[in-house]
């Protein structure tokens, strides 16, 4: 007889994917992220939790330079992806975002067909040599997005005609189509019903075998369910970072405890 390990709870030490050191973010005069040091592991789901305005989304958006698009936003400190500074002048943000994909709170399919939604990224990054290869990428991505069976017969119907849950899975499929190494998810389930949420969570768990997934969520139960590591942000500080099981049963910091137990802290 062998012991059956509880896979969801097994935390294996993986390679560091992202390494952030002394990261500061300012929006004009507002100091939004203060001195954040964190190592995000590969093939791991990391959850960022914290009250509104704590900086978790801001920090997430630093990881693929989404904050570059905001004029008043200034990022200081080092963020290394596989040891390489992503804020280096030589780094092309477009290439970076192909490596570090993102899924947003609200499903935002392009006003194009389902097929073209997926094919868009691979086309602009030149990932397919011909139509057959592109077809293959589209099918593979839709399968990974756990939506292939629902859309395979209407690939040329508009993506916006899908239900909310399907649209979100379409967006996840679109994000994985460029073969990213990291997937950032900013409250991917907040607009979804419980069934679609479960499907997306199941998907996140599958994605973990290939990618490093970072998810921002307001649902503590979701963080507890899908992640292996959890980071708690409060007022721009990274207060506590550790194994999800430990954070939810025995947090070390009082502020974490107050937040996850729903006390006024």
């Amino acid at each position: 007889m062998y012991d059956t390990p509880n896979t969801e709870r097994t935390v294996t030490r993986n390679e560091t994917k992202f390494s952030a050191r002394k990261v500061q973010v300012y929006y004009g005069d507002t100091h939004a992220i203060k001195d954040v040091d964190v190592d995000i592991e590969d093939k791991t789901v990391t959850a960022f939790i914290g009250p509104s305005g704590c900086g978790k989304s801001t920090f997430l958006r630093c990881l693929n330079r989404m904050n570059d698009t905001i004029d008043v936003c200034r990022v200081e400190g080092d963020i290394l992806l596989d040891g390489q500074d992503i804020y280096d002048k030589k780094v092309d943000p477009v290439q970076l975002r192909a490596k570090v994909g993102m899924v947003f709170q609200k499903p935002n399919p392009f006003p194009k067909s389902i097929y073209d939604n997926i094919a868009y990224g691979p086309r602009i990054h030149g990932l397919a040599k011909n139509k057959a290869e592109l077809d293959e990428i589209v099918e593979k991505s839709l399968r990974r997005g756990a939506i292939w069976n629902e859309v395979k017969d209407r690939l040329h119907a508009p993506g916006t005609g899908l239900s909310g849950g399907q649209q979100q899975r379409l967006c996840i499929a679109r994000a994985v189509a460029t073969e990213p190494e990291v997937l950032l998810m900013d409250e991917p389930c907040s607009a979804l019903d419980p069934i679609a949420t479960s499907q997306v969570e199941e998907l996140i768990d599958e994605l973990r075998t290939n990618y490093s997934v970072i998810i921002v969520t307001h649902s503590m139960q979701q963080a507890a369910r899908v992640s292996q590591k959890t980071a708690f942000f409060h007022l721009g500080n990274l207060v506590e970072f550790g194994e999800t099981g430990q954070i939810f049963t025995n947090p070390k910091d009082e502020r974490t405890e107050s937040y996850i137990t729903g006390r006024i802290g």
Partner: peptide, 11 residues
């Protein structure tokens, strides 16, 4: 940490 939850029924 304070002793009271935001949801007082929980307390």
């Amino acid at each position: 940490m304070t002793d009271t939850h935001i949801a007082s029924a929980f307390d």
